[in-house]
Design a protein around this nucleic acid. Structure first.
Lengths: 372, 372
DNA sequence: TTTCGGCTTGAAACCGCTTTCGGCGGCCAG
DNA sequence: CTGGCCGCCGAAAGCGGTTTCAAGCCGAAA
């Protein structure tokens, strides 16, 4: 029982129009009253909020008759629980984050779609967060993101996924995370792996089978992308196994970009003897190689075989179309989201191991037998 | 002065272990206590929650001394207000949505980044929502999205931005929205416009100046993309103004895709006489034209001039590089977000008019004088 | 001295939903 | 006839903020 003393009334004589709230009297002709709440449902169904809550959350401890009655009212009212209030009580936001610093648009979009595919059916949405890993504010920035919307978990894309300081930060924030990586690092549990080393070996095998011997590689930025390192290792080892050492003059480091690809190709193509095949670290780089070959009047694949990595849309748009390794990017996004959900829900299910996907070679027009 | 009555203590005789809350005694050795709340701050500062709230929200009605004291404690505690609770009280989620059904990855990513650039500084985050506009569940799907996270507003990308039913739905949900469009439709207010008609006219002018007369166009899917219609109108009108009618046999409809571009080029290049220039509806389509030209052994631009639209990364990767219209996509995202924020905040500022951006021509290698 | 109004501040209600902790009635074994 | 367990349900206490509505303090005006 509330005591209310009926005192004041003429406090603010004029000036301010008291507009506290229009009570239940807003049922005008139209329909623009406020959204129905669980209280409205409870009142109409003549039960307590808790019972309505039970129905919403599919508790088994509700009599069938009661359940249907409440369900009907919910439907009639078009009621849907307020996510904020729900989140507040549940201590969950039903929001996952996707953190990336990756210029490769198709890659990011595909991961996004894959992740959303898995998240949606669990009632989760995805918050995207491009960032600059070189900024001094980088970690603070991420921290703000996490706390500002209290994300339930995040997915990290390369290369930020390889940042140990970031992983540590997330751990200290008790924010579950999954890292998308191209090689197993320390922590095997929170990871979706793409086996880049083995994939690069496949490229080597392809080139060897075609009969190439003067084989070059433009490796990605080894310092900032683990995948660059993995692809180099896998490629050169596989080459060596076939008696085809990767010669130092045939190895240059690019930046995984179109421009650097063109510049590196410039270098490689001025070696003598000229390599007959170039494994570009990724498709962007391969496009750069195309550019240089074009400017020099070299025909692909007659004068030069080019191999990419990723199978981005670009690969099939180029002329000639580019032989490349296809990564199941969408699947990786999906896997990452599923693992993340499992962590958040603390499902006792599968043992926490790394999920692994395997790229495979897509042979197109840019690879052929050497001419010389 | 606060009055506190020291009453009850033995209310719950047995059975339940009262664990209401560990008061201030949680200062264990470690640091894994729960996140500090506004209550903690208030207690430590010896003020009410409300005053802390005032400091958080930068109310001017707090004495300077009090403010700094509270601010210090906030900093020491590392307190940051819970977004859920805040949202619940504010009736805001600090979340915007980005809805798209667009296969063009760079486009989407750039819009995303532009939008985030503007949203972040207002404390907002972005929830992405790819969708299938042809699904029968389309509208329901969007509705679920909006209510499930109670988005404060959404940005619509083409072609879903052109869907009137969707706009109506959002209006009925009282969800502010901004549409990114390529032409003014009904409602001028909630729109960011890209002037595709004028842009296409620029292409026509470029071709005319180069001396082309047998000019073809592959128009996008007119039924599902307004931009396709606009580009066609702008192009053919501008051509007509220069006495260069767009001949029916030189006009075919594609799907804004690589494959359709290749197929349409097939058609156009088998006309006799062959066109000397093709305006592809977008860059993807242009890549398809490149493909067909490549297969037929036609040299670009010597045998054929090709023009794209968008200036996606693809345009500069192709060999020869593609002349195309550059759209300021990032800016469009930024503009859209800013307009949306203005609506949400109900800023009385600028009059609600459409924001407009203008693409401009980027001349590269794929356009030259006609050979015949 | 009293009144008035501006500056500060706080108690309580509230946002909409969940959890805690029981209560109540029926059924079965003791 | 009890005691106890089980299925079903509700009152109240949160969750962590903000708003409402006063109220205390103080100097200036009356």
């Amino acid at each position: 029982m509330r005591k209310k003393q009926a005192v004041k009334t003429a406090r603010k004589p004029a000036t301010s129009v008291k507009q506290h709230r229009a009570p239940a009297s807003i049922a005008r002709s139209g329909n623009l009253e406020r959204r129905p709440t669980i209280n409205d449902v409870a009142r109409l169904a003549n039960v307590s909020k808790k019972t309505v809550s039970r129905v919403i959350n599919e508790s088994p401890f509700v009599r069938e008759e009661t359940r249907t009655r409440i369900a009907t009212i919910i439907k009639e009212l078009g009621f849907s629980p307020d996510p904020q209030a729900r989140g507040l009580a549940f201590r969950r936001s039903f929001l996952m984050g996707l953190i990336y610093d990756n210029p490769n648009a198709p890659y990011v979009i595909n991961i996004q779609e894959g992740a959303l595919f898995a998240l949606r059916k669990m009632g989760y949405e995805l918050v995207v967060h491009p960032c600059d890993r070189t900024s001094p504010e980088f970690l603070n920035d991420i921290k703000r993101l996490i706390t500002r919307q209290k994300l339930d978990g995040v997915i990290l894309l390369p290369p930020v996924s390889e940042n140990p300081a970031l992983a540590a930060l997330l751990k200290s924030l008790e924010c579950p995370y999954i890292r998308v990586l191209s090689a197993a690092l320390d922590d095997l549990e929170n990871v979706v792996l793409s086996m880049d080393r083995q994939s690069a070996a496949e490229v080597a095998e392809h080139l060897a089978k075609l009969g190439h011997t003067r084989i070059a590689m433009i490796v990605g930025p080894v310092a900032s992308y683990r995948s660059a390192h993995e692809r180099l290792e896998g490629f050169s080892n596989a080459l060596a196994e076939r008696g085809l050492k990767l010669m130092p003059q045939y190895l240059v480091e690019g930046q995984y970009t179109f421009e650097s690809g063109a510049a590196c190709a410039e270098l490689l193509l001025s070696r003598s003897p000229r390599p007959t095949a170039i494994f570009a670290g990724n498709d962007e780089t391969a496009a750069g190689v195309y550019r240089t070959a074009y400017l020099r009047g070299l025909k692909i694949p007659d004068d030069l075989t080019v191999i990419g990595f990723d199978d981005s849309p670009l690969a099939s748009r180029l002329c000639p179309s580019l032989t490349t390794m296809r990564q199941p990017i969408r699947d990786m996004g999906k896997l990452a989201a599923e693992k993340l959900m499992a962590k958040v829900a603390r499902l006792p299910g599968p043992p926490p191991t790394a999920s692994t996907v395997f790229p495979h070679l897509v042979v197109r027009e840019s690879s052929g037998r050497p001419n010389s």
